[in-house]
């Protein structure tokens, strides 16, 4: 299979998954107990907004017709109006500062975790059985067993409660809204520290264990012995040859664990009051803001599918065998 055909096939599969996801989202939110239009209409909306929605989404038509109208509207980026945020369009609410906040938090968190995991995993795997290995492995196991929200609460207790080093909640300090950009950026970063530490603690242990185990597995392979026999220094084998495997492992994990990204965002943003998509979803659930829940639901499926698609493509580029065997897994 050529690379282009492989990518086309994966792209097609991803599109189908997204389509199924959108369909599930549509019917799930129509099966609400009570009024089938509850997914779009609510007493919290103004009468004019309601009429406009009935018109736009064909809410007086049969369900199957509504489904196609829904798909057409989705392509136009129309997902209805939020019940809570004074009828703000859902897409405007999602694709705004909130998404930026989430991307900053999760992106930085995953990047830092991947970076540490790759290098520490290499070193620990290379020295397997050493004291460093045993300590790192057991600490990682403990960390994967601890619930993420509890770690968040502990960090708040220690650094916000006792030491008063980080703010207890939020994304920006209210009194600095008018300040100059640099002060605001510093303030933003100051708020970011707590949630960022939690995200790193959330991702790092499983990445680290995975890289370590991959490295340990590879160390038993013949080519390592050949490299050693060739007289290569340890450092050259580690960073010249093993690093590639470690990076490949991390790329796979980033994609495979992308559903965790969503739970991580929901919980961490809730604990720290970080004004992102996770917190928006949580508040929308509490306030039954169905259009927003539905929108975020679709967004998260797209994110996960795209992450997997990217991983497949990167894999195919790095390792040509995959193209012939039909993909990861």
């Amino acid at each position: 299979m050529s690379l282009a055909r492989f990518i086309a096939k994966k792209f097609f599969e991803s599109a189908i998954t997204v389509f199924i996801g959108v369909t599930v989202a549509f019917f799930l939110f129509r099966l609400l107990p009570g009024d089938p239009t509850a997914a779009f209409l609510d007493i919290r909306l103004s009468p004019e907004a309601k009429l406009k929605l009935i018109e736009e989404f064909g809410l007086n038509k049969p369900l199957w017709e509504q489904y196609f109208v829904f798909l057409a509207n989705l392509l136009k980026g129309n997902l209805g109006l939020s019940f809570v945020y004074q009828g703000t369009p859902v897409t405007k609410l999602i694709f705004g500062p909130k998404l930026v906040n989430t991307v900053v938090l999760m992106g930085l968190g995953m990047f830092i975790s991947a970076l540490i995991a790759t290098f520490l995993g290499l070193i620990v795997g290379w020295n397997r059985g050493s004291k460093l290995d045993r300590i790192t492995t057991s600490v990682s196991y403990m960390a994967t067993s601890a619930p993420i929200f509890w770690i968040g609460l502990l960090i708040l207790l220690i650094f916000a409660g006792y030491l008063k080093l980080i703010p207890a909640s939020g994304t920006v300090s209210v009194e600095l809204i008018e300040a100059d950009p640099l002060t605001r950026l510093a303030d933003y970063l100051w708020h970011l520290v707590g949630p960022l530490i939690v995200i790193v603690i959330y991702f790092l242990p499983s990445y680290l264990l995975y890289v370590r185990n991959t490295v340990v597995g590879i160390l038993g392979e013949d080519f390592i012995m050949v490299l050693k026999a060739k007289g290569l220094k340890d450092r050259a084998i580690l960073f010249g040859h093993l690093l590639r495997f470690a990076m490949l492992t991390v790329v796979t994990l980033l994609a495979l664990q992308s559903p965790l990204l969503v739970s991580g965002a929901i919980i961490t943003e809730t604990v720290f009051g970080w004004n992102g998509i996770g917190l928006l979803l949580y508040n929308s659930v509490l306030k039954s803001d169905y259009p927003v829940i539905q929108g975020i639901f679709i967004l998260t499926i797209v994110v996960v599918v795209v992450a997997n698609l990217l991983a497949d493509i990167i894999h195919a580029l790095i390792d040509p065998r995959i193209r012939f065997e039909g993909g990861r897994r």
Partner: peptide, 11 residues
Amino acid sequence: LSLPYLAVALA
């Protein structure tokens, strides 16, 4: 596998 479980459960 591409479902965000916690989000689904919340929904």
